[in-house]
Computed example of a mutant assay.
Amino acid sequence: MTDSMQQIPLATLDAVRKPIAEANGMPNAVYDDPAMFEYERDNVLGKTWAGLAFGSELPKKGFAKPVDFMGLPLAIMRNRDGEINVFHNICSHRGMILLREETEVEGMVRCPYHSWTYDLNGNLKGTPHIGGVGVHKAEGFVCEKHGLRKVRSAMWNDIIFINLSGDGVPFEEFITPLVQRWEEFTGNGGFDKVHVAPTGSAMELTVMANWKLAVENYCEAYHLPWVHPSLNTYSPLDQHYNLIVNDNMSGQGSYTYNLSDVAGTSLPQFTDWPQDKIRQAEYISLYPNVLLGVQADHVFSIILQPQANNKTLEKLQLAYVGEEACGDKYAACRTSVLESWKVVFGEDVFAVEGMQNGRKSPAFEGGVFSPVLDGPTHHFHQWVANRYAESMA
């Protein structure tokens, strides 16, 4: 346990976990203390299923990509069968970083230090000169015991999830409550019907703020009239409702989302979407670090990649309904949708960065919550407080 952890009394966590009208928010240190960064990697994000990257970032079979996960070097590999696995990005020989840039792998993944080689399933295949010059085997050394260390992973909605600790709940148990909630809109297996298009599907945004503040901001609609004046015209605050799905999901919904009219788009829609709810949309934070949105004609996913205690990379990917929606016919519509979301998420930057700067003030002691409009944000604070308390037990 870090010194910073010892400075967070259990009573402080208990205050966060009180009913919303009596509760305080999490203390400044969990946002502003660099010492908390790796602690949270191992004890908050690492104990459950965290978003790592998108499958679309590995565009073909035989592709490999290094990813830094909160200071931990990982490698994502798509094998010859198209399956994706995640490994620790270190050679089993001397701990050398194996991959330094994304690449299409022609044959094997080769360590740049002593040229040990691995296949895309992480198996050690070559150990040149291990037994002396020209001798590529050594007595008692078994390659099968020294492959790459695998990280537990799963894929859903083109999001690659990882469970660093390896002892999280089965992924199906983790994701099923969300799938079941959204089946009403998307139909059975609805997320199998959406596709990432060659254009109008991706953007990245770097925010100088702690990753948790991005989640908190996304959870609630309270800030809409002041931070998102344009969005508030076609999805106003009084048409929003709070969502708490289960222990690890919360967010907001809108009864009158009508971007298609505002942006002049006419994209294909989910055929199972109830016509009496065609303007409804929902936005859910899937704890710890994935933000999701579903509308009748597209879905989006945001993976929050924590870069430091006060820096977060937001990776956004939009997906559209049916393969036809990804063609040239709808290119302009997709661009309009993406540009609209760029405006919305860009408007949030000053808010989360302002809160980050505010966490340097000793006058702020976690803040309080609106008992009506801050329910989802308080739910996330409780979830984080519970993870901290569990690590201290």
Rank of each mutant, 00 (worst) to 15 (best):
L98M: 07
Y39M: 13
A53C: 14
G168Y: 01
G366D: 05
F63V: 11
A319L: 07
T117N: 15
H379S: 08
N357V: 10
N246I: 00
Y113H: 12
P9R: 14
V105W: 00
T335Y: 05
L10E: 14
L13P: 06
S266D: 14
N357F: 04
H129Q: 01
L318P: 05
N217P: 05
G375C: 14
N163F: 00
N43W: 04
S260C: 12
A296H: 14
V135P: 13
A385D: 03
G134A: 04
M1P: 10
N85Q: 15
V142M: 12
K212M: 03
V169N: 06
F87T: 03
P177Q: 07
H223C: 02
T312Q: 09
N163Y: 00
Q305T: 10
F54I: 07
K18A: 13
M70R: 14
A385H: 03
N217D: 09
Y222R: 10
Q6D: 09
A154M: 06
N123I: 02
P66G: 09
Q356V: 07
M249W: 03
C219N: 15
K315C: 08
V135G: 06
W116S: 07
Q382N: 10
G168T: 00
G166N: 01
V343M: 13
N309C: 15
N163L: 00
T312S: 12
R181Y: 08
A15Y: 01
H93K: 09
H195Y: 09
G126Q: 13
T176M: 13
H379Y: 02
D119R: 07
G375N: 13
E38D: 15
M77P: 11
V343N: 11
M96W: 03
H298C: 08
L98Q: 06
A263T: 10
Q382Y: 00
L99N: 13
F37E: 13
Q317A: 03
S56F: 00
G55R: 02
I159M: 05
R100M: 10
T233D: 04
D167M: 08
N24Q: 12
K145H: 11
P27A: 04
E390S: 10
E184L: 12
